[in-house]
Computed example of a mutant assay.
Amino acid sequence: MSEINTLAAFYAFSSGALWLLGSLLFMGFDKVNIQANRWLGAFYYILACTFTQLFLEDFGIGGSFLIHLLELPRWAMLPCLYMAVNSYVSPSLPKKKWFFHFVPFLLFLIFSLVYLMPNLFNEQNDLLPSWIGFIVRYFFFIQTIYYWILCFSLLRCHQKNLKMVASFTEKIDLEWLRYLLISVLFLIFIRILSISNIQATYFSPILYFLGIILLAYSTLTQKSIYAIETYHPAEKDEIAPKKALNERLTPEQVEGLKYIVMRKTVDEKLYLDPSLTLSALSDNIGINTHELSYVLNNGVGKNFYQFINELRTEEAKSLLLSEDTKHLDMFGVAIRAGFNSKTTFYTTFKKATKLTPKEYIKANSEAH
Rank of each mutant, 00 (worst) to 15 (best):
residue 85 V to Y: 06
residue 85 V to T: 09
residue 85 V to A: 13
residue 85 V to M: 11
residue 85 V to K: 04
residue 86 N to T: 12
residue 86 N to L: 15
residue 86 N to P: 08
residue 87 S to M: 12
residue 87 S to D: 11
residue 87 S to G: 13
residue 87 S to C: 10
residue 88 Y to R: 12
residue 88 Y to T: 09
residue 88 Y to P: 05
residue 88 Y to I: 04
residue 89 V to Y: 08
residue 89 V to A: 07
residue 89 V to E: 11
residue 89 V to I: 11
residue 89 V to F: 04
residue 90 S to C: 12
residue 90 S to G: 08
residue 90 S to F: 15
residue 90 S to V: 12
residue 90 S to Y: 14
residue 90 S to K: 08
residue 91 P to F: 09
residue 91 P to N: 05
residue 91 P to R: 03
residue 91 P to Y: 07
residue 91 P to E: 01
residue 91 P to L: 07
residue 92 S to E: 14
residue 93 L to A: 14
residue 93 L to W: 05
residue 93 L to C: 12
residue 93 L to G: 03
residue 93 L to S: 12
residue 94 P to D: 15
residue 94 P to A: 11
residue 94 P to W: 14
residue 94 P to N: 15
residue 94 P to M: 08
residue 95 K to L: 06
residue 95 K to M: 12
residue 95 K to P: 13
residue 95 K to F: 03
residue 96 K to W: 07
residue 96 K to G: 15
residue 97 K to Y: 13
residue 97 K to P: 03
residue 97 K to I: 11
residue 97 K to Q: 12
residue 98 W to G: 09
residue 98 W to I: 09
residue 98 W to A: 15
residue 98 W to R: 14
residue 99 F to G: 10
residue 99 F to N: 08
residue 100 F to E: 10
residue 100 F to H: 04
residue 101 H to R: 09
residue 101 H to M: 13
residue 101 H to G: 07
residue 101 H to S: 11
residue 102 F to G: 04
residue 102 F to Y: 05
residue 102 F to W: 03
residue 102 F to M: 04
residue 103 V to T: 13
residue 103 V to A: 12
residue 103 V to W: 04
residue 103 V to Y: 10
residue 104 P to M: 04
residue 104 P to E: 00
residue 105 F to E: 02
residue 105 F to K: 04
residue 105 F to W: 09
residue 105 F to P: 03
residue 106 L to D: 00
residue 106 L to F: 02
residue 106 L to G: 01
residue 106 L to A: 07
residue 106 L to R: 05
residue 108 F to A: 04
residue 108 F to E: 01
residue 108 F to Q: 02
residue 108 F to L: 07
residue 109 L to R: 02
residue 110 I to A: 13
residue 110 I to V: 11
residue 111 F to R: 01
residue 111 F to D: 03
residue 111 F to C: 04
residue 111 F to N: 03
residue 111 F to L: 08
residue 111 F to S: 06
residue 111 F to I: 00
residue 112 S to E: 01
residue 112 S to K: 00
residue 112 S to R: 01
residue 112 S to T: 05
residue 112 S to G: 02
residue 113 L to W: 04
residue 113 L to N: 05
residue 113 L to H: 02
residue 113 L to K: 01
residue 113 L to P: 04
residue 114 V to T: 14
residue 114 V to P: 00
residue 114 V to K: 11
residue 114 V to M: 04
residue 114 V to S: 08
residue 114 V to H: 07
residue 115 Y to S: 08
residue 115 Y to W: 08
residue 115 Y to G: 03
residue 115 Y to L: 09
residue 116 L to K: 00
residue 116 L to P: 00
residue 116 L to W: 00
residue 116 L to V: 15
residue 116 L to S: 02
residue 116 L to T: 14
residue 116 L to A: 02
residue 116 L to C: 03
residue 117 M to G: 05
residue 117 M to Q: 11
residue 118 P to M: 06
residue 118 P to K: 06
residue 118 P to V: 11
residue 119 N to K: 13
residue 119 N to M: 06
residue 119 N to S: 07
residue 119 N to L: 09
residue 119 N to W: 01
residue 119 N to D: 05
